[in-house]
Amino acid sequence: MDEQEVWGRYKAGSEDDFSLLYRHFAPIMLRYGNRITTDKELIRDCLQQVFFSLWKSRATVGTPASVQHYLLKAIRNELIKKGKRAKLHDELPENYHFELEDSHEQTMIQLQTAEMTRQRITELLSQLPARQREVIFLKYYANLKYEEIAAIMDIGQDSVYKTTYKAIARLQQLLHNSALLLLILFF
């Protein structure tokens, strides 16, 4: 399936292709929204608004080089426009450290099962500063290039790379401490 062809047919007024775009991209847009704010209703409203506007403006809208890139940026802008600032994830200070509350041994016992390991890692990831989480999502889940992430987040490419690297280094350090790295192979 060619994304540009689907986009072309949607622009020509095909509801089937519009629906195809929605089904393909809505889940990742929701996931992304979830990284930016905890307000689920806001995310849903913004998703609907983005696609509603997309449908209304089908005749005039351009053809983006990457549809996913275009839509991720669209929902981010919509969230920021509509978002009540307070509900967006608070940016954590750069020197923020989260601590493992357990001793090494207790951690190992806790990690007996893969499911617990998975939860633990989700927990660790969720404790990274908001900007790092957003970059990690775009880099590793949405699989975008550094330049694309920079364009979506309106920051320099260099700063995207540094944020990614910082997040990795922090996780790495943490994983070494908790011996988690050994276990993540197994799920």
Binding site: A26, R31, Y140, L171
Partner: peptide, 22 residues
Amino acid sequence: LVLLLSQEQADDHSFDEEAQLV
């Protein structure tokens, strides 16, 4: 590390359901 960082709750279908509701 890459596999870890790519981890989303892959089996979490709530986003699909939410997408359908929207």
